[in-house]
């Protein structure tokens, strides 16, 4: 298997504040990996370093064998931020193609038609609408399409469902599973939600309070493609408990 992300001795500090304290990690291509940990522990910083948006203070971060900052320039990483960040003056269709319109010479051969993806996520009737006409869940679906349309081999999601209500979150979990699996895309998904992490992932990495270290690496052996009722399976509850215990142990260690 190809390694999508390689972290070796990764450290990150802002002045005297250490946020990441030495992380070694390999993520196999095509897997879905969640990073879960207490608030402010450095999970988002870790994601930003992998996405090439923040340089590492020490160690290295490689994405498909090249330094993260260089991978960013080659559009190897597509990010889905916590807030959809849709441009209010662009229509849904134009927002979905934003990342393709920028730095066009670096566009990959694997790009997908954003309109086709918008149709898949049920936004056919809203192609010419502006963001203020959409609900929070719909806006986040556009943000997801915007990232997937890029055709990048690595998807970096930073708590994309955090601002949504419980029902919409549950719908979005199903949607992410349907959209991402089978595309061969590697995903790093930062979250606070144990349910989200287990429902979506092949691996769940539990981090310590700041500075972040990986204190548990839990393999989620649930079948792929994930059935829609995966969250009703007894094995699902066991895995949630396993992640919860790891988080508690980390918080009190």
């Amino acid at each position: 298997m190809t390694t999508a992300v390689t972290l070796r001795g990764l450290r990150k500090s802002f002045g005297t504040l250490e946020t990441i304290a030495g992380i070694d990690l390999d993520i196999e291509a095509g897997t879905f990996v969640s990073v879960i940990g207490p608030s402010g522990c450095g999970k988002s910083t870790l994601l930003r370093v992998v996405a090439g948006l923040e340089p590492a203070s020490a160690g290295e971060a490689l994405v498909y064998g090249e330094p993260a900052t260089s991978a960013r320039k080659h559009k190897q990483v597509a990010i889905v931020p916590q807030h959809p960040g849709l441009l209010p003056w662009r229509t849904v269709r134009a927002n979905a193609s934003l990342l393709l319109d920028i730095n066009q010479k670096a566009n990959r051969s694997t790009t997908t038609d954003p309109v086709e993806l918008l149709e898949r996520v049920g936004l056919t009737k809203f192609l010419d609408a502006h963001p203020h006409e959409l609900s929070g869940g719909m806006q986040q679906r556009v943000a997801l399409v915007r990232a997937l349309a890029l055709g990048a081999p690595l998807l970096a999601m930073d708590e994309p469902l955090a601002a949504l209500d419980e029902i919409t979150r549950s719908e979005m979990r199903l949607l992410i599973n349907q959209l991402v699996q089978g595309r061969g895309v590697t995903t790093i998904f930062v979250t606070h939600s144990i349910t989200e992490a287990v429902a979506l992932s092949d691996r769940v990495l539990v981090t310590s309070p700041r500075p972040a270290r990986i204190i548990a690496d839990i393999h989620i052996g649930l079948t792929r493609p994930r059935p829609d009722d995966v969250e009703d399976e007894p094995r699902f509850f066991d895995l949630c408990n396993q992640v919860r215990h790891a988080l508690h142990e980390g918080a009190h260690s």
Binding site: L53, P81, L150
Partner: peptide, 25 residues
């Protein structure tokens, strides 16, 4: 919007692209 700025940075937008697509509007 800072999150939009970061989004554009994630695909290595040039200063001109940031001006045209984000700062000017």
């Amino acid at each position: 919007d800072p999150s939009s700025r970061e989004l554009l940075a994630s695909v290595d937008a040039s200063a001109w692209e940031v001006l045209w697509h984000l700062r000017l509007p």
